[in-house]
């Protein structure tokens, strides 16, 4: 569900203000708290538990187990391949693969530029929509949000047309101005892919930040306004800090999405030789599993990517916790 990077965390915020379920219980007959409904609750959660075990737990176990095996063809290649335990050999191969390591560097560079840029765009638009400066907000918000309704893959196809000199109105327009732009060159392709990401997801992030801004009580900055603070000052030093949790959370999910980058470069790959089949870590997993016909190596790469993603998420969560703690909460 990488196309909804941030919605999930903010929706969950309702949880915050509601009393824990056990707090509600005193109003109820005591016996209902323990096991009311007999077997019903177990029956009710069964479908999810089964799905969860089969499609989340099992794949993780499979990936880990698979990554420690390797198929070795027997001599002439006729007798079929046999699978043998190889321990950490696949991991050593993955770490020894320069292209695989380079793909991590690439998404890191991509993330360092794309994530802050998109957050600035989303936050600026959210603040503008929250201010009294802009009229016809609904229409403009519609325009900004529309790309979210475009599937990520189709967005990549669409921008692909904007990047190909033969059809691109963008390249042609720049040419008529005397600028010779190659948006698919080795040096620019990373930013062309980043642009697709910004285009697709800035809208939903804007909506989330805007929702958070709408919840800031007006008394908070009416006082500042009476003290003579301008709109810009209020936006930057009052509104923005107050929605910091929402900003951090949208950032977190965007970072996770960046590490998983797959759809956009995979699609753009067909129009440029400058995107290799292992351009991002996730593409390397895919390439090893399909093109390389080595699912075992692919599994090892998937495990590495999963661990890195988890580590980065936890680090970010930790970092934001520390920072908020420092604010004397």
């Amino acid at each position: 569900m990488s196309t909804m990077p941030t919605g999930r965390t903010v929706q969950a915020s309702r949880e915050r203000d509601r009393p824990a379920p056990s707090d509600q219980a005193p109003a109820l007959p005591r016996r209902r708290r323990v096991g009311g409904g007999g077997a019903a609750p177990y029956l009710f959660v069964l479908p999810f538990v089964v799905l969860f075990v089969v499609f989340m737990v099992a794949p993780i176990v499979i990936a880990i187990v698979n990554s420690t095996f390797s198929s070795q063809s027997s001599g002439l290649g006729f007798g079929g391949a046999s699978t043998v335990f190889v321990g950490v050999q696949n991991y050593l191969r993955a770490f020894g693969d320069r292209d695989f390591l380079a793909s991590f560097g690439r998404v890191l560079l991509y993330g360092v530029v794309q994530v802050p840029l998109m957050m600035v765009i989303a936050a600026t638009l959210a603040l503008l929509f929250d201010s009294a400066l802009v009229r016809a907000k609904r229409a403009f918000q519609f325009a900004v949000f529309l790309p979210y309704a475009v599937p990520g893959v189709i967005a990549a196809l669409l921008w692909g047309f904007f990047y190909q000199p033969s059809v691109s109105p963008l390249v042609q327009g720049l040419q008529s101005l005397g600028i010779d732009a190659d948006l698919l060159a080795p040096g620019t392709i990373l930013w062309s892919v980043a642009n697709v990401g910004i285009w697709s997801y800035a809208g939903i992030n804007m909506i989330i930040l805007f929702s958070a801004l709408q919840a800031v009580p007006s008394e908070v900055f009416e006082a500042a306004r009476l003290d003579g603070a301008g709109d810009l000052r209020i936006a930057l030093s009052i509104k923005l800090p107050m929605i910091a949790p929402a900003v951090l959370l949208t950032t977190l999910s965007t970072v996770i999405g960046t590490l998983q980058l797959f759809n956009e470069p995979q699609v753009l790959q067909s129009i440029t030789p400058n995107i290799s089949s292992d351009w991002t870590p996730n593409m390397a997993v895919y390439a090893a599993s399909t093109l390389g016909r080595d699912a075992h190596l692919g599994s090892a790469m998937a495990v590495i990517l999963g661990v890195v993603t988890l580590a980065v998420s936890l680090l970010l969560v930790r970092a934001t916790n520390v920072r908020e703690g420092g604010n004397g909460r």
Partner: peptide, 13 residues
């Protein structure tokens, strides 16, 4: 973190 998300403080809309 999840709980923190978007409601920064109490108050009316």
């Amino acid at each position: 973190q999840v709980r923190e998300a978007s409601a920064p403080s109490s108050g009316t809309r």
